[in-house]
Amino acid sequence: MKKCALILYLIACLALTGCARRDAPVTRTVFAMDTVMNLTVYGKNGAAALDAAEQELYRLDAHLARGTEGSAVYALNRDGTVIDRETAELLQTSGDIAQATGGAFDPTVAELLELWGFGSGAGEHRVPSQEEIDAALAHAGAKHVHIDGEQVILDLPAQLDLGGVAKGCAGERVEEILRDRGITGAVLDLGGDVALLGSKGSAWRIAVKDPAAEGAYLGVLETDGDRFIMTSGVYERYFEENGVRYHHILDPKTGCPADSDLVSATVICADGVWADALATACCVLGAEGSLELRKTAVPFDVILVTVDGRVLYTCDGFAPAAEGYTYEQVA
């Protein structure tokens, strides 16, 4: 009797080691897209997969960066046309998002960004005059972008900047590459924007930074994989002049820093490019506008931090952690 039980027990243990063993995760730090990225993968051949992912990040960075000579976007901005499937696809999606958000997200704000000094060049921060803003506004707008198959035509002097979707796009490309190599779970921290692939065996837990306090967290989000968690915040880049703070999230309609009631917006969405762009759009639209947007755009959840100290969130699985905020779960 005892022997029988013992044998069965040992068999059970052996069987379990099959399920319970996981290859230890492999992590890599990559410097790309003007930020530091930490990639962690679970599954076999992690290191080789990460090599491929790293190369793809460098390639995309060089291909999409506005300021890099030789990039597709650089060529487009200079010549008014470029033939490149990736850029065309990305712009197509950007156009869809611009439409869905009523223009709150707009990749043609490049010129405006330069005016304020938030561009890719080493422009100085300053408050541009209304004439300068109006002039730049005249060239902005998704209507200046025409896509025909793989060809993109830009009505110069309009200028494009894909920085608002670059990390979302990078996340998606890297995930494709990892999946092709048999990676079953990965967490990609692309400078604060997180892409989650598959599963590591237990739920993903993502801490969300508190914009007001260094080292503090708004809460922890528990979620499944195959999601993108992208954040935009007014605190990321700004300058002060005469006691007024000007941040980098411009309202494409006014050409000035968006005057909304949000400090930051974190978007959780299954599509990386949408998540990236929606985060910016939500900051422009404000709390109400963002929640309205959820009814019409692709499905997404948000965690919004308002200027009056409220944290509005629409997802289950978010556990508040900070004091000093009023948390509200909304539909």
Partner: peptide, 12 residues
């Protein structure tokens, strides 16, 4: 896995 290991250990 919790039930299995707990239950079997107890059994043994």
């Amino acid at each position: 896995i919790f039930s299995l290991l707990g239950g079997f250990s107890a059994m043994l």
